[in-house]
């Protein structure tokens, strides 16, 4: 299938093309990411920058492993801004853009899951 937001090259190499393992990791991401984004939004509302940083930090490697390249820099900026307390006014836009990007990637990942099964 054709992907525009998700590049599964790393996951394919990592699993040696094992479809069951790829599906296992994709499923983990599908469960984990929406939950973490929910926490990020909640912490933004509470202006709890440290907890926001922690949530963004823990999601960052998973975005890389799922090959969502367009969102790698966005999540890094969210982590950096909340960690250093800089450009906090940009956070709502960054988080909204990240959520939109990841949600689109999730749709693609679900299609990949169907193709893998």
């Amino acid at each position: 299938m054709e992907s525009t937001l998700v590049d599964l090259t790393f996951l394919e190499n990592f699993t040696g093309g094992d479809k069951a393992k790829m599906a296992k990791y994709i499923n983990m991401f599908l469960q984990y990411a929406p939950n973490q984004i929910g926490i990020i939004e909640q912490k933004l509302e509470e202006k709890d920058w440290d907890s926001l940083r922690v949530a963004a930090h823990s999601l960052k490697p998973q975005v890389t492993y799922m090959g969502i390249k367009s969102q790698e820099e966005v999540i890094k900026s969210i982590e950096h801004n909340s960690a250093d307390g800089v450009n906090l006014e940009e956070l709502p836009t960054l988080i909204s853009s990240f959520k939109e990007g990841v949600n689109k990637a999730i749709t693609e990942l679900k299609e990949h899951l169907v193709a893998l099964s």
């Binding site: 990791y25 983990m28 492993y65």
Partner: peptide, 14 residues
């Protein structure tokens, strides 16, 4: 590791 995916991937790899 408190990240379940990282933990499982590293376990699988090693």
């Amino acid at each position: 590791d408190d990240d379940p995916m990282q933990l499982m991937m590293l376990e699988d790899h090693l």
